[in-house]
Simulated assay, not measured.
Amino acid sequence: MPDRTAPPASAPSPASAPVPAAGGGPAVSAAAAGRDAEVRPLGVEFTPTGDPAVDAAIGLLEALDGVPTEGHLPVYEDVHQRLGETLAALDRS
């Protein structure tokens, strides 16, 4: 079972992250695709729920502030799994 207390791996830098090319061609870097390579923070804050497992899962989303969009999916999947496990534990209790 993966370590659920470890922070998510960092995402590749925007200039090196592969981005699908228009028309289904080979992937290119964000800089080569002409995208704005500057990553801006979202500034989203969350209110603690009082449940340590839920707060820890949601807290991982704060790590996405400043990470290029291409790096969000693994964190979203991890948070989704953690929240699902928390709900399943409630069903077992």
Rank of each mutant, 00 (worst) to 15 (best):
S29E: 03
S93M: 12
I58G: 05
A37T: 15
A21G: 12
V28T: 08
V44W: 15
A27K: 02
A9S: 09
L83W: 06
A32M: 08
P2V: 07
S93R: 15
V44T: 13
V75N: 00
P2N: 08
A56L: 04
A27S: 07
F46V: 14
A27D: 04
L73D: 14
A22F: 07
D78Y: 09
S93N: 13
S93V: 12
A53D: 06
S93D: 14
V28N: 00
A88R: 11
D55T: 11
A63G: 13
P41I: 08
A33W: 00
R35L: 15
P68H: 04
S10T: 12
R35A: 12
G66W: 03
P18S: 03
G59I: 11
A37Y: 02
A17H: 00
G34L: 08
T69H: 11
L90E: 05
A15G: 09
T49Q: 13
S16V: 09
V75C: 01
P20H: 11
A17R: 03
A37P: 05
T5V: 07
A63Q: 10
G23A: 00
M1S: 14
G25N: 06
L60M: 13
M1I: 05
T69R: 09
D51C: 10
E45C: 12
H80Q: 14
A11E: 04
P2F: 07
P8I: 15
A57C: 07
G24R: 03
G24Y: 02
S10I: 10
R4S: 13
A30R: 08
R35N: 07
F46T: 14
E85H: 12
A88E: 15
Y76P: 00
A30L: 10
T5C: 03
